[in-house]
Amino acid sequence: MAKITFIEHSGERLVVNIPVGWTVMQGAVQNGVEGIEAECGGSCACATCHCYVDEAFVDALPAPSETEEAMLECTAAERLPNSRLSCQLKVSEALDGLVLRLPEAQS
């Protein structure tokens, strides 16, 4: 399990325990985080699971794949250096304490 904090665009904070091996997107959606749409169900095909990773964790995450990189170019909200697709972030113990902010819009 890793404890991950989601900050909705409204400012609401949700702290969620997500099993290792799940994606951050799955943990968010199953636990009522609403700022993630995840239309394609995690296939890296929709870019509606966009999130901003807290600066302190950006370097701790594996770099985005080429596909994620390309899909990030097409997010509804502005792409920032700390933008990631949450369906491409696999949960490991190392992500314990991760903080993510959600954008204003996903589609």
Binding site: Q26, N31, A38
Partner: peptide, 11 residues
């Protein structure tokens, strides 16, 4: 199965 629900229960 637990990973493919489109929305969680409380939704």
């Amino acid at each position: 199965e637990a990973q493919i629900a489109i929305r969680g229960h409380e939704f």
